[in-house]
Amino acid sequence: MNPMRRRNRLTRWLAVPALLLTLLALPAGAAEPAELMGKRLAACAACHGDEGRTVGEDYYPSIAGKPAGYLYNQLLSFREGRRQHTIMAGLLANLSDAYLGEIALYYAARPHASQPQMTGATPEQLALGERLTVLGDLERKIPPCQACHGEQLTGVVPMIPGLRGLPARYLDAQVGAWKNGVRHAREPDCMGKIARALKPEEITAVSAWLASQPYAVDAKPLDSLPNTMPMDCGVLP
């Protein structure tokens, strides 16, 4: 086993207790009534919409119905600078882990809603986007999106987000941020590797195709993936 991989393994095992603590911390939240949480989180609704749904929004992602573990991890990342957004960091700076857990649970339990976006992408771009999403490019070690995000791209509880129903500009910016080293996930950072392997025009094509897809209202993150994942991802136990 090469030393890099051994180190990755080690980091991964060290991350497991942290993640377990995270997930153990989460269920405590169910005590907070949703109606009160909605009022407390008016600051979030300003960009992410009422109950975390941004239908027809140009940039800000819908967060309703995303897996709680994923949302919690993103909140921590914004607070601690692994994801960079000045307003998010400012809002979260002095909120406790327990409150961030409550926020994640609240949005995870809200029903998702979105509509396919008209992105202005050409048929060639959409075809390229679809091919990469569904088949990947195995020669360049780019797995299909479906291999981890689920066949319907609805995500998997508790840590993998759905990809449908998100604005193309948001997807483009996130994968671009990974490619440029601005966004990070816990090592081994699988999305970072994939983003670096993708060309900018491929990122745009995938984002456009994903944003143009319909997303069933009752679609929910999967409970588990049918096959083992093609890559090592640090955020997963």
Partner: peptide, 8 residues
């Protein structure tokens, strides 16, 4: 523990 926030 769960303060109300001011929107930006």
């Amino acid at each position: 523990p769960f303060p109300y926030g001011m929107p930006p």
